[in-house]
Design a protein around this nucleic acid. Structure first.
Lengths: 97, 97
DNA sequence: TATCTATTTAGAATTTTTTCGAAATAGGAG
DNA sequence: CTCCTATTTCGAAAAAATTCTAAATAGATA
């Protein structure tokens, strides 16, 4: 939910790779697990839960699968935060952190 | 230097606050310490070293002070990474992670 | 109903990050 | 040269994040 949670979530390379996978298409938890041979299903599930808490992905259930999907809108917020440093935006704007 | 180091560096709220402070003006280590009453000078120094490693700040010495200054250009790279998810940029572009 | 498949949750172990106090470094001032 | 001020580095302790295996959940199928 909060900005800090989002930044923490995207700070991990494996979680960023999960986001990249989901950029192309929505995937079930099992399909995501297959992309990480070095991690157990439980660990991938843990990472997905962090991404979900940060609103970076959403889940929907179908049969006994859980599908994950990217929520692109959160990235706008991060870009806005960055923009305050590049001098590219109105500097009077409210900003998280 | 690497993208991962940068993302790790900005994932911490206290380090983000240091960047925000440096957005306005360059500050000495001691001046930055004063903004964080709950942290020791050693701890602030540790955080500054991470920001420096991530190229988010640069340092310059004057007398026995060390001044820190923001390096805004790194934020462009983060924004570019975010943009691939918002559909706002050329998707054929190479991207870290 | 019994069982199989997909996934998460729980609990514990490991690893990484953060933090501090004390000691080291470095340069300026007397 | 000696002391003082600013800051970092070191080593250890504490806190947080990551990971695993095993057990729990939930829905589908036989």
């Amino acid at each position: 939910m909060g900005f800090s949670e989002t930044m923490k979530a995207i700070s991990d390379p494996q979680r960023r790779q999960m986001l990249t996978l989901l950029k192309q298409e929505r995937l079930s938890a099992g399909e995501i697990v297959q992309h990480f041979p070095s991690l157990s299903a439980a660990t991938v599930s843990y990472h997905l839960s962090l991404l979900k808490k940060a609103s970076l992905i959403t889940e929907s259930k179908y049969k006994n699968f859980i599908y994950y999907e990217l929520n692109a809108s959160v990235f706008e917020e991060i870009m806005l935060w960055c923009a305050q440093f590049t001098g590219g935006t109105d500097e009077t704007q409210d900003q998280a952190d």
